[in-house]
């Protein structure tokens, strides 16, 4: 099955059309768990981006030798390896960031979005396309996390990137994990609305 999309289309697909958080609604657990500030979202996004791209590349490269009956263990092993690598690298070279999000980095092993991309895309497509797809998905996740982080940080702590902008804390509730669901839900509705709006404008039926 050859892929007829260009590399840029694949990246855009991951960011917009199939955004892991807002459109596919995958990996919600970290999305609500750690996206309390923009910086946290960004850091976890970078880690996921790295793991997604590396895993996609690896699986795409060895797709011919993977026994079809044991795909899933191989995927898990690949993801776990790259997560361990980034975990060790972060702990060694960025200790301050790691102290804040260490436990969530280890959780990337269980992220549905990565396994799903390997199964849906990397195990069928050539190496180049898998790289762009992984990049798009990773970026989509990162942007999603940062957007949620922005809303929650602003409403919960009255700050952006740690700088106090409002001078007061509007709603303490938004810091708590449960508020993550509200933010994700509201933003999903928002993005769906925008999509519908543009479709109607172009004259498509919704």
């Amino acid at each position: 099955m050859a892929n007829d999309k260009s590399s840029m289309q694949l990246v855009a697909n991951g960011i917009l059309k199939e955004n892991p958080i807002f459109r596919l609604a995958l990996s919600m657990c970290p999305a609500v768990g750690i996206s309390t500030t923009v910086m946290n979202g960004f850091m976890l996004g970078v880690a996921v981006l790295f793991v997604q791209v590396c895993s996609s590349l690896t699986i795409s490269m060895v797709k011919k030798v993977i026994h079809p009956r044991i795909r899933i263990p191989t995927y898990t092993l690949t993801i776990a390896t790259w997560v361990t690598v980034i975990d060790m690298v972060l702990a060694a070279y960025m200790p301050e960031a790691y102290a804040k999000m260490g436990i969530f980095v280890k959780l990337i092993v269980a992220f549905a979005i990565i396994t799903m991309r390997l199964e849906m895309f990397a195990c069928k497509e050539p190496v180049g396309a898998s790289f762009w797809d992984g990049l798009g998905m990773g970026l989509g996740f990162m942007i999603g996390m940062m957007t949620i982080g922005l809303v929650r940080e602003l409403l919960g702590s009255g700050a952006i990137l740690g700088y106090d902008v409002l001078g007061f804390k509007p709603l303490l509730f938004f810091i708590l994990p449960s508020a993550g669901f509200f933010v994700v839900g509201l933003m999903m509705a928002f993005f769906n609305y925008i999509e519908l709006y543009y479709k109607r404008k172009k004259g498509f039926k919704s």
Partner: peptide, 15 residues
């Protein structure tokens, strides 16, 4: 994983 462990363990301890 072993390669990365050896590469990073010194920096981690130092940190």
């Amino acid at each position: 994983m072993g390669i990365f462990f050896v590469m990073t363990s010194k920096a981690k301890k130092h940190n």
